[in-house]
Amino acid sequence: MPKKPFLIFGCSSKPRRWLDYDDYFERGYSYNKLDIVWFRGVPFLQEIPQPLYFKLEQKEDGNPDVAEYLPPFLEGFSCPLFRDDLLEILYACGVDNFDVYSTEILDPDSGKVYKNYKAVNIIGAVAAADMEKSEYVLSDGIPLIDVPFDKLVLRKDEIQDLLIFRLAENLTTILVHESIRNVLLDKGYITGEYMDAIQFYEVDKFGFL
Rank of each mutant, 00 (worst) to 15 (best):
V42K: 13
F44S: 02
F44T: 07
R40K: 11
F25S: 06
Y29V: 05
D35P: 01
V42S: 05
Y29N: 15
S30N: 15
E26P: 00
I36M: 06
Q46P: 01
R27S: 03
F25H: 06
W18I: 03
K33F: 05
W38V: 04
S30Q: 09
Y31Q: 11
E47V: 13
E26W: 08
V37L: 06
F39Q: 06
L19I: 04
F44Q: 04
D20Y: 01
I36F: 15
Q46K: 14
Q46M: 10
Y29A: 07
W18Y: 13
Y31T: 07
E47G: 13
L34N: 14
G28Y: 15
I36H: 05
V37T: 14
Y29F: 14
F39D: 12
P43F: 08
D20A: 06
I36W: 09
L45K: 11
F44H: 07
D20F: 00
G28H: 10
F25Y: 12
V42D: 11
D35V: 14
F44G: 04
K33L: 10
Y31N: 08
Q46S: 12
D35S: 15
Y21L: 14
R40Q: 09
Q46Y: 08
G41N: 00
L19S: 06
K33S: 13
G41M: 00
Y24C: 01
L19N: 04
D22T: 10
R27P: 03
I36K: 03
L19A: 03
L34Y: 11
Y21R: 10
R17A: 04
Y31R: 11
R27K: 10
W38C: 02
N32Q: 09
W18D: 01
Y21F: 10
I36V: 13
W18R: 04
D20T: 04
L19C: 02
G28S: 12
G28K: 13
Y21I: 06
D20H: 06
R27G: 01
R40H: 05
K33D: 14
R27Y: 02
E47F: 08
R27Q: 14
D35W: 15
L45D: 14
I36C: 06
G41D: 00
G28Q: 13
W38F: 09
Y29Q: 11
R17M: 09
W38M: 05
K33P: 04
R27E: 09
